[in-house]
């Protein structure tokens, strides 16, 4: 899940906590209309109704529990899967003559990574393709060595992306490059 997704999730949880906490505090202090502060949290009437509607009430609790468990499983899976929308599988291009060219997306990203790390200033590179195949979004992270000239590496990265676009006929719709530079030698 993205950082913005986390931020939205925890903002919603915070708002729910504020609303619930404020309502319970107002009920406890007697300022919430319709609630007597001396009354029980679970009134006898409520418990009677729960017992009268059994087994539907307990079945409803079981369904609610299963939905919560499903939501938890979904959240965990999204957390452990990493950023979503990564292109996997096969890129398919129609040829000028009858037929199609199919290339596995992993091979294309590996080729771009190899091209990027061909520069001695690039210690490591990571490439992620997202979006629709003819014009994918290309996300690159390059780790530069301490003595690498960033301007030269920048030109190398753009040349590698141009070669990638020419070879695969996939002109990136959006290019995003993050450079991490090692600290200089002391």
């Amino acid at each position: 899940m993205t950082n913005a997704g986390h931020r939205l999730l925890w903002t919603i949880i915070a708002l729910l906590l504020v609303a619930g906490g404020a309502a319970a505090l107002a009920a406890s202090l007697g300022t919430l209309p319709g609630v007597d502060p001396a009354s029980l949290l679970l009134s006898a009437d409520l418990i009677d109704r729960w017992r009268m509607t059994a087994p539907w009430s307990t079945l409803a609790a079981a369904v609610a529990g299963a939905l919560f468990a499903l939501a938890g499983q979904h959240l965990l899976a999204r957390e452990l899967r990493g950023p979503g929308g990564t292109l996997r599988g096969t890129l398919s291009q129609p040829g000028r003559r009858p037929g199609r060219t199919r290339v596995a997306a992993d091979i294309l990203t590996d080729a771009l990574v190899r091209d990027l790390t061909g520069n001695p200033g690039v210690r490591r590179a990571r490439v992620v393709l997202t979006g629709a195949p003819p014009h994918p979004d290309v996300w690159i992270q390059v780790d530069l060595t301490a003595d690498a000239p960033p301007a030269g590496v920048r030109e190398h990265v753009h040349a590698a992306v141009r070669r990638f676009a020419a070879t695969t006929q996939c002109q990136p719709a959006h290019l995003d490059v993050t450079a991490r530079i090692e600290p200089g030698r002391q």
Binding site: L59, G65, A66, A69, L75
Partner: peptide, 23 residues
Amino acid sequence: SLLLGTALLVGGAVTAVQAVLLT
């Protein structure tokens, strides 16, 4: 979020099992 996901999964599963057995 990881902790919340784990708590929801475990809590929800326990609630569901408990409610089914009560039924």
